[in-house]
Write a protein that binds this DNA or RNA. Structure first.
Length: 564
RNA sequence: GGCGCAGUAGCUCAGCUGGAUAGAGCAACGGUCUUCUAAACCGUAGGUCGAGAGUUCGAACCUCUCCUGCGUCACCA
């Protein structure tokens, strides 16, 4: 029985005839300040039936409650405040973490159910920008969170390797490109052609028609178009993989949009057979007015397919392969309508598993208040941001810890960690204007702050040179700073659950910051390496903190160097 | 215009299912390294929680209206 259940039971005993444990649970709260207690029960709800002031009710309840097992139970205003037995609770929490190690917070609730995660999805022939970072790191973190809860995530990089833009790119290459240029700097020059194409198309709309025509050729298997496409794709993928290596992120599948090229026909046929397809202005659509949505455009008037056609095929393919319990799409909020349409069409087709598809949207990153646009050249290149962050970390290490042995590796871990953490610490849906100074900051609420806290803990443990078995440490840790740390440690499993339920890595990131802050406060106020009877208890706490910080960072996909 | 997301301290944001004096970080000012890594810690200052009504014992949180910003509204993805 956990402590919360104990508190509920105590209240239930005092209120037997009035509230059931199931009713008491949701009313229970955690006071803002631990000075007020560890759990609080507000008595307002009882005021009507008791015909008395809440303050009096609180006082009376305290009389009735059996306070044994608690440090104390007191009435403060209208609240009944429970103070836990700190020694026992600290002991239990720390020992649990020491015993379970990296498995602390694990659950088997997922029963290895498959969860494909559609993430990252950069477009071929375009550089990876800060926008792609969001999808990549959020998806990666969700995969780790769900894996910890016993699910089986499948990270799918749904590459943007199909569509009209390839027709445009082929036209641009024919008109202005050269093989030599592309070999020298593949993505840079492909991007240059693409941007140039759009500039020219402004003046000469016929170019767009040419682009569409070349894409049609590609779809029909034209050898030249296919050859160029394969070339562009291979070059791009090689560049992307360099960035994924830097981020420390891997994928289970690189099946992009092109992979579904030959899987769309059966879907379209099925739609037709079920009478869901209709012609409108020369195009094939599924009408969704009953669902309050715009029609889903399945085929263009020239017969070419569209984004949603491929997504339908992909969704069905993923279900057939994985029989997923959830299918996540970590895609920008601007595509919300698209996923509503996707689910609506699948539902119309009779696929009840459409309900298990979850669009995990995130806010837009802007630059100087404007949307990032590859076409307009208004991009923030991820590679450059990472370079900048790593070189700043390098400078920081040179200044603060010049004798650090593996400085280059740590600079990489800290720089990249700062960038990833910055992207994960806020609510997914928050939009933000890109600001390099914020992204590469190492002080305050940042990834390096958490990393640094762990490095300090590790440093203590190295210096302690302690061989005693910490799991037998029985001395309680009850001073206020240590107590806050213990409470955060105990909360970790619950935090993971909340993060998973909300598809929200920021819940983990914020938790890591709070734990780090609490530990730094303890560290500043208590000398840990003192040879007294509580040394083992303190080292146990430090070990537990380091373990949980490492676990939290791991869930975010951020490295935890032992020294920095 | 319809739909969606957002509006909390100078800036960037927390605030779990409505609850006890609204919290952090950055920036500003002032402290703390002969002692476990000062990438840290402590303190000062800073707020009509966009505006107005309503529901409630109680609202930053729920409902409605309005204002502002962003996204989106079929042949891009």
């Amino acid at each position: 029985m956990n402590v919360k259940e104990n508190v509920i039971a105590s209240l239930h005993q005092a209120l037997a005839s009035e509230l059931t444990p199931a009713e008491i649970g949701p009313l229970l709260e955690v006071p803002k300040s631990s000075k007020l207690g560890d759990y609080a029960f507000p008595t307002f709800v009882l005021a009507k039936t008791w015909h008395r002031a809440p303050q009096q009710i609180a006082a009376e309840l305290v009389e009735r409650i059996d306070a044994s097992g608690y440090e104390q139970v007191v009435a403060t205003g209208a609240y009944v405040n429970f103070f836990l037995d700190k020694g026992a609770f600290a002991q239990q929490t720390v020992q649990t973490i020491l015993a379970q190690g990296a498995a602390y917070g694990d659950s088997t609730q997922g029963q290895q159910a498959n969860i494909p995660i559609d993430m990252s999805s950069p477009n071929i022939a375009k550089p990876m920008s800060m926008g792609h970072l969001r999808s990549t790191v959020i998806g990666n973190s969700l995969a780790k969170i769900y894996a910890k809860l016993g699910f089986h995530p499948i990270k799918i990089n749904y590459l943007g390797d199909w569509g009209t833009q390839f027709g445009k790119l082929i036209v641009a290459y024919h008109k202005w490109g050269s093989e030599a240029e592309i070999k020298a700097d593949p993505i840079g020059n492909l991007l240059k052609y693409y941007v140039h194409f759009h500039e020219e198309a402004e003046k000469d709309p016929k170019l767009d028609d040419e682009g569409r025509a070349w894409f049609k050729k590609l779809e029909d298997g034209d050898p030249e178009a296919t050859h160029l496409w394969e070339w562009f794709r291979g070059l791009s993928l090689a560049e992307f993989k360099k960035i994924y290596d830097r981020l420390g992120i891997t994928f289970d599948s690189y099946n992009g949009e092109a992979y579904y090229n030959d899987k769309m026909a059966p879907v379209v046929a099925d739609l037709e057979q079920q009478g869901l397809l209709q012609e409108s202005q020369g195009a094939q659509i599924v009408d969704l007015t009953a669902e309050g949505l715009n029609p889903a455009l399945i085929k263009r008037s020239d017969g070419a397919t569209l984004y949603i056609t491929r997504d339908l095929a992909a969704a069905i393919d993923r279900y057939q392969k994985f029989h997923f319990s959830l299918s996540l799409y970590v895609v920008g909020a601007e595509q919300t309508e698209h996923f509503k349409q996707l689910k609506a069409v699948l539902t119309k087709m009779g696929y009840d598993w459409a309900a298990q598809i979850v669009h995990v949207p995130f806010g837009l990153i802007t630059k100087d208040g404007k949307k990032l646009s590859t076409r307009k050249g208004n991009v923030v290149l991820l590679d450059q941001v990472l370079d900048e962050a790593v070189s700043l970390a390098q400078a920081q290490i040179a200044a603060k810890n010049p004798q650090l042995v593996n400085a280059a590796t740590v600079a990489h871990q800290v720089g990249v960690g700062a960038v990833i953490f910055h992207d994960l610490k806020n609510d997914r849906l928050d939009s933000f204007d890109f600001n390099l100074q914020d992204v590469v900051r190492f002080e305050g609420e940042t990834g390096p702050y958490v990393q640094y806290t762990n490095a300090r803990a590790q440093s203590i443990l190295r210096k302690a040179d302690f061989s005693e078995d910490l799991t037998s440490a029985t001395v309680p840790l009850t001073d206020p700073q240590a107590w806050d740390v213990v409470k955060y440690l105990a909360d970790f499993p619950n935090v993971i659950q909340r993060a998973a339920a909300a598809f929200e890595p920021s819940v983990i990131a914020k938790y890591a910051l709070r734990l780090a802050k609490a530990f730094n406060k303890y560290y500043a106020n208590s000398k840990i390496l003192v040879a007294d009877e509580q040394l083992a208890a303190r080292l146990g706490l430090v070990t537990a903190v380091s373990q949980v910080l490492q676990s939290a960072l791991a869930l975010l996909g951020v490295a935890a160097p032992e020294e920095m």
